[in-house]
Design a protein around this nucleic acid. Sequence first.
DNA 1: CTAGGGTTAG
Length: 705
Amino acid sequence: MNPSMAPPLSTLSPSTMAVSHFPLSKPFYPKPTSSTSSPSFQCHSSISEQLRPLSLSLLKDTPAHDESANSKPTWLNPTKSKPNIISLVRHRKTKPTSNGNPQSLLLNPTLLQTLVSIPDSDKDLFFSTLTEAFPSPPSDDDVLFLLNSLYRHPKKSILLLEWLKQSSFLLETIFYNLVLKSLRNARQWDQVDRIAREMLHQGPQPDNITFSTVISAAHKCRRFEKAMEWFDMMYSAGVLPDEVTFSAILKVYAILGKKEEALILYERGRAAGWKPDHVAFSVLGKLFGDAGDQDGMLYMRDEMKRLNIVPNVVVYNTLINGFGRAGRPNISKELFEEMCKLGVNPDERTLTAILKIYGKYKRTRDAMDIWARMKENRWPMDQILYNTILTMCADLGMESEAEKIFEEMKQSYKWLPDKWTYSVMIKLYCRRSKSDCAWKLLFEEMPQRGLRPDVTCYTSLIDCLGKEARVDDVVAAFESAMETVPSQIDDKLCCCLLSTMARCKDEMQMNAILACIEKASPMLHSLICMLWNESVGFDEIKESFRELLSKAPINVRRPYCNCLIDLCTFQPGFPSHRPRELFNLGNIYGLYQGFQTQRQSEWSVDLRGLSLGAARAALDDWLESVAETVEEGEGLPPQFRIFTGYGLDRFKSVLPRYLEGYLSETGAPFHKSEEMAGSFVAEKADLLQWLHSQGILSVVVSEIL
DNA sequence: CTAGGGTTAG
């Protein structure tokens, strides 16, 4: 944002200030704050007052009454003149004093039951019951007890408050705060807002507990703008936030991804002498972690070192997670070892985090090390950790270990396998082409245990069965999915159906899958019909394809395109130009970027990760572009290379084998590269001659060479 | 619950 567009100073508040001072695109990490370098503001009660000295130096028409403040030399006592943005002492909880009846009236034990049983709408009965129970005003303790007991009954909390108001009971802030808590629990934002405003206007005076409750209520009700509004209101109400309220608003910034705003507030608090605690650091750590911002997290670490704060387990957890997310497993590992060394015991979440990272980054050795230490140190375990270990085993291809743990869970009385567990095991089996094992878990064990599979279980199984070309079983699995999770059927599952369709052996199979697709996605079904129809042109296909893609999640778009190309490549009945049309569309929509490389010594195309049909289309496309270059009279390198990858397992070797066959079938002069496994090379002259023989290149080759 | 803020899974 342009500084010249900043709002007038009178409207500045902590949240708007942050936006106006720093461009959002620039990461901003303040220098370490020390008491000597902190800006010397005067002590004022509100943000706009704090900013007044600044406004005096920036604006010409200054109100006269401010001049005395400005003329005071600010360096007179720099240690005392800190900006008043945060209260350095936490709000103290005190017992109410006004209704100081030392002996609590003996509560009729059935009173509470009676109150709870009264319908919310029957205000009169609620009031008369209370009046009967308390002929003289209740004591503070009675009211505290009642309010705490009505925590889960928001409507009655309000009724009690109203009754207290009309009796002679002196309502202090604490009683309102308890009502707010009850309303927050029920996520009744409008009521929270109403009661808090009532406090502002009629009293009792809201305090830090009021504001932090209101801010966290706004957070819980996802009314983030209201959270910021109330934070700003604190200052105008003359209540200085303390560290708890500060963390609450920082959390709101974190959820909104407002990095700069959070940092500015943080830095201003630091300048005011605030020593952030573990909660503040975990909030900021999470903020930077979610943003994949390593520098932000490193800055937090430095700050803690500077302040001599040893992170606690929660802070370590957020950082370990964050660095894992930011693609820095080594830093996560360092942090994990550091906390162990410092005697900060890892908990379930720590272990979940680190094992997830080791699984994701294929760090088998590190994972096994943790696994051993878990047993040795009797580190704590929970359901999520159990399932994460299974996921990790799946990621690392440790099938038998996973099976062992799975059995262990079945024997356990504490951590029985749940639907997550089954979903991981099904995925693991499907990845290893063991569809029968997955089938048994999905259709036998899960129902036996009363577990409802979700759509991902079906998707894994359908994908696996499809790769094995077991069309009838795919149809059966799909029909079961339609019965049990019809509303969850998504693009990913459609993609698996599509890829099965590309493998069908005859028309009957094709029609069976097509019928499934029609039920799952009419839009996809109609696109397939258009692709079939010779008379449908490129623009129509493009529009229909665009519609399909724009509705699909990003990670399914490329698979969609791949599968459609495969379908048109390998099944009869589609016009022969369809695969290239779809490939071009994939390029137009940015699905296939960056697999062509041009160096002086060599041009190459990287087909790894493409489906068979898409790889063939990409190869044809590349060869044509080579021919075009020649026709445009531009220079070529001496050598050309195709990367196909090489796979030791059955799955990864499919593409290399297919392309090898395709190349020899067409007589293309590419041969297996000896110096670089997983690639094929051709000499320039051979390639050009072949291109000419295929009619791809019209220029006579001898003339170029 | 005993007035307020923080972290884990396809």
